[in-house]
Design a binder for these strands. Structure first.
Lengths: 254, 254
DNA sequence: AAGTGGTCTAGACCACTAG
DNA sequence: TAGTGGTCTAGACCACTTC
């Protein structure tokens, strides 16, 4: 007569807890620097054992939405801290969203130069569906030139739904500290944890060829990226062209 | 005076168990069809609680070296079964090692035609270090043309250390059922679970241009892949050229 | 019915960080 | 010293598969 064995609908408890935490993270609680409640407190709040909370947090850690630090707490990872090479131990988390490396293998972080910034451009029909916005919705468009070791290697075109980045202007964009994704996180609460990319080899458009000192029509790598924040919310579309004469796009699968 | 609290050197028990299991898998025990001992039996064998075994197995499942099937057991995944679209549920495991898709998005598996097979070629110095073999070590070289919907899209050149594939000849290679990686797994015990890829845009070599019906020098995507089996052992290097006029290389990160 | 993996509990003890 | 996450235990019960 186990009348107290709970209802037990379909989804396991740890999944409900994971989704609840994910929603809280997507909703902007617990910004990058502040710790989550301790596992014991979360267990009390959800009325379950600590092990169940740990199972939920494990998932979010695997999805790169959280990091644990023994003795300190559990945090939303700081994207800029990740992008910077770590002192202690190998920099496995570095370069997570930057995959262009020199042929030899030495990993250098790029220097970014803002070429152009437009605060309100109607969204083309080719981009709107990827970001889940209406066609002709107002967008912010920026173009960057990235140099590695002084040499221009990547030309970026960024498309941001204006509604997700209220008040973002050229000064804030150019004057940021750290990476673009760090700005999305600290300025607007969008923690990018996943990207979908599509790559093609194309003949260099004239502007790209000029930037890289290439003959017109020379082969360049075209990368179309969609950046997704914690709840799989798309926040940026980026079209990049890379000069792969002396650099390569690296990809490790699974 | 806790004289029985165990030695507790550095590595946690679950890691030792994980490594032990990984070594057994790399050593060829438990081939694709046969289940591992049950978690209870493994716990007894290692003299620990079931939860500790589960922690170790969890890691190998995350690394795609094992799959659990409730009610049946824990298995080495069958690569060909993964590569085939699944009936039940979304085919999230399909296309794991094949990233070229039609522009629209419809995923078609390619048909492969063997163009060339050479049973013993000395390994070039440019390839040897990637596979951990000595320069001029004997290699098997194969070239494939892959068609998607009848259209030639990818030209592959495969380099295999002969020592890892004893007895592999053209007939066995061409007459296989399933994918190349399925052959590696079922014929030689090398379960590929990870790949490292480097991509560039290059001018099409003449032979590639001819195969794709491209003008000489047209841009094509060059993919250099190293395939790694369970213990991070490199087993294949592959240089592919892809026609990305109507197809794209897809990549989802983390 | 028996055997498998999946969920959840309750608690002990360890390792690390901070005040 | 107190609080955090990390490891490990021992066991209950559930869901699925096979006989």
């Amino acid at each position: 007569m186990s009348y107290m064995t709970a209802v037990n609908a379909e989804p396991p408890l740890w999944r409900l807890i994971r989704d609840s935490l994910e929603a809280a993270l997507a909703g902007g609680e617990y910004p990058a620097g502040t710790p989550l409640p301790s596992e014991a407190k979360l267990a009390a709040r959800f009325g379950c054992a600590i092990g169940t909370v740990r199972r939920a947090v494990d998932e979010l850690v695997a999805a790169r939405a959280l990091v644990r630090r023994q003795g300190k707490g559990t945090f939303v990872p700081d994207i800029d801290a990740m992008a910077r090479p770590l002192r202690d131990g190998p920099d496995r988390t570095a370069f997570y969203f930057f995959h262009i490396r020199a042929e030899g293998g030495a990993r250098l972080l790029p220097e970014t130069e803002l070429l152009d910034f437009r605060a309100s451009v109607p969204c083309p029909a080719s981009i709107a569906p990827h970001l889940g916005v209406a066609p002709r919705a107002p967008m912010i468009v920026a173009r960057n030139l990235q140099r590695i070791g002084g040499r221009p290697v990547v030309l970026d075109e960024l498309w941001l739904p204006k509604v997700l980045f209220p008040g973002l202007d050229r000064a804030a964009f150019a004057g940021r500290e750290g990476t673009v994704y760090g700005l999305y996180q600290k300025g607007f609460g969008h923690s990018v944890i996943r990207t979908d990319e599509r790559l093609r080899a194309v003949a260099a458009p004239t502007e790209v060829a000029a930037a890289f000192g290439l003959a017109p029509g020379a082969p360049v790598l075209r990368i179309q990226r969609i950046a997704l924040a914690i709840g799989d919310r798309p926040v940026e579309m980026r079209i990049s062209h890379a000069d792969t004469r002396e650099h390569e796009y690296f990809n490790t699968l699974a």
